[in-house]
Design a protein around this nucleic acid. Structure first.
Lengths: 336, 336
DNA sequence: ATTCCATATGGGAACGATTTCATATGATAG
DNA sequence: CTATCATATGAAATCGTTCCCATATGGAAT
């Protein structure tokens, strides 16, 4: 009815006509080019009246920029990943980018698939890869990428990255956990994951060496990232290494499983067996006993990753190529 | 060097030329139009050799379709929301859509903002709104939307929706929790959230009424969705309603806070005070004692929502407009 | 007085697809 | 024998921007 009515099907030509200028001038108005005060005012009036919004796809077609960032994640319903995404979306939306999500469900080959998909015809202006492993296929796909990428969660030389200080985190935690202890056990994850699998394990072993403790093979076990798997491996430890007096776990989830197992087998934590995790998931303050762990700044690391990527995409000078996050050991009641 | 080299800057004209056909024929090849066997083969060869991929933005510009779905969420690092998103992305990627994420950080006004943003110039082909509240502004923005939308998490008549059976879930759970109990307390959430705030509360009160129990005002409290808030409200209950023998909580998170509080105040769960939650978050099997709760099919509800939306977007007949999810009470050790 | 530069504006060619229209051929139905 | 239809193809218009050029004006520098 009214002229105020918002018409979605308005284009730059109509705006130009209504404002009495050329379409080039409207485009300049939209992109901060030379436009006189009078025309500027006239165009603003028309745009406000009509509710005109420029077409993203036309703009993308012409400029080759999409204002979209692709985020590849192994699994969305994981505490650490969702915290990272929270940080990523916060920064990226703030900077005017849209975030498209590619969930691979822990399938590394689909990660490569998505990398290639994003590479094609510049679907996105940049990529964030929350990585668990980096295979040669990953490297290849990454170097073929025509847009900037930042890897989150693993240290790598094949591109920019933001990662946790897994070695020191575990080293410092283990140093504390090893006090008054003689038979430590460790439940880690598969070594393909360099950060969580290798670095944390090395940190643990280094702390043991410093404490003058030799760790037998049967005290070292491998779980996956689940609670159930933590339970199973703890059970196996009780069987094969009954003298253990602390179980150091690579993640909080594994530690929850270990706690549950110890409870069911009637061992008192921490008096008989201490337990530690890593991640400081929200639940760690809730389980019984509360879990000694390391707080990793996941949300902040996501934000930092996004900031770096924005830096690359906007061609900023002096964007760091590697960021190692800090962390804090949180001593609670599952250790002595 | 080699002709096999993938050239990203290939367009439909070059393909047409190399295959000795017109660009219209290539387009028909890509979109299942009439193309003879010979030309079809020729085009396929050229496309394989060059690694040509059609430009999404050009296609979008011409067709007005984006193959993108916008998902508006209140908070990503929440167990229930991330499970929903897992289901949504699974189905949508399968159907060839990309998912863009709009995180509002529990700010309902930003939800409306995103709805409007998506409405503009068909940025997306469809919208999923994971809703906590639906205000008149929401309704207005929803009805102004030029693309289909499905609301997840709340029942509404303003558009299609998928929601949990909050009333019966809480009713059935409470009925069990009220056995041999005389002084039940309830910690809910603010009533603006119809599903979690109102329906669950009503379900609880109905179960009490059926059990012939009258619940005094001071036994009813309001928390937000956090563990800490659950702790505080449980503390307030112990103060104002010391005779309580069960705390029914609107969510698992609140229940974790209540459990922690009861433990710190030296009350034995469930012998002195029972506790129930709702959601069946992963942790509910881990806390001590394990939590009696209701399993809601969040991931499935996300998948179902996505399927409905795809139905609307592809113009399918007979897509349901309302889906109420089922649920199962899970009795564990926090109740008698 | 001439040159140069910042400001200001419009015309028209891209960007890379889809889609309409016109046209052609061979088979089949009447 | 012709009308109709399914199959097959290409030329050209179109989607809605940006951006390169050409052009113009007024002031500052030489």
């Amino acid at each position: 009815m009214v002229a105020e009515e918002v018409n979605v099907n308005m284009d730059i030509n109509q705006i130009a006509q209504m404002a009495g200028v050329s379409r080039a001038t409207v485009s300049r108005y939209l992109n901060d080019g030379y436009v006189s005060q009078e025309k500027r005012a006239a165009i603003r009036r028309v745009i406000e009246k009509t509710g005109y919004v420029p077409s993203r796809q036309a703009k993308s077609l012409r400029t080759g920029k999409t204002n979209v960032v692709g985020v590849i994640i192994p699994k969305i319903n994981s505490a650490s990943v969702s915290r990272m995404i929270a940080g990523i979306t916060m920064v990226l939306n703030e900077a005017g980018y849209q975030v498209i999500l590619a969930n691979t469900d822990n399938d590394a080959s689909r990660e490569v698939e998505f990398l290639r998909l994003f590479a094609e015809k510049s679907q996105v202006d940049g990529v964030i890869l929350i990585a668990t492993v980096i295979t040669p296929e990953h490297r290849e796909a990454i170097s073929a990428l025509p847009v900037p990428i930042v890897v989150l969660g693993q240290e790598t030389d094949c591109c920019a990255c933001v990662y946790q200080d897994d070695y020191n985190a575990m080293h410092d935690l283990a140093s504390i956990a090893l006090r008054d202890v003689h038979h430590p056990a460790y439940i880690g994850v598969f070594e393909d994951d360099v950060a969580v699998g290798q670095m944390r394990r090395k940190g643990f072993l280094a702390a043991c060496a410093e404490a003058g403790i030799e760790v037998p093979e049967r005290a070292m076990r491998i779980a996956d990232f689940t609670v159930d798997s933590g339970y199973e491996q703890a059970e196996a430890l009780l069987e094969n290494y009954p003298e253990l007096d602390v179980i150091v776990c690579a993640t909080d989830s594994i530690a929850y499983g270990a706690l549950t197992c110890l409870r069911e087998y009637g061992h008192v934590v921490p008096d008989e067996v201490a337990v530690t995790g890593m991640d400081d998931s929200e639940i760690s303050q809730i389980v019984t006993p509360t879990l000694t762990t390391v707080h990793l700044h996941y949300k902040t690391s996501g934000a930092e990753t996004a900031r770096m990527l924005v830096g690359f995409m906007t061609g900023e000078e002096s964007v760091p190529r590697k960021v190692k996050m800090s962390c804090e050991v949180v001593a609670r009641n599952s250790t002595r």
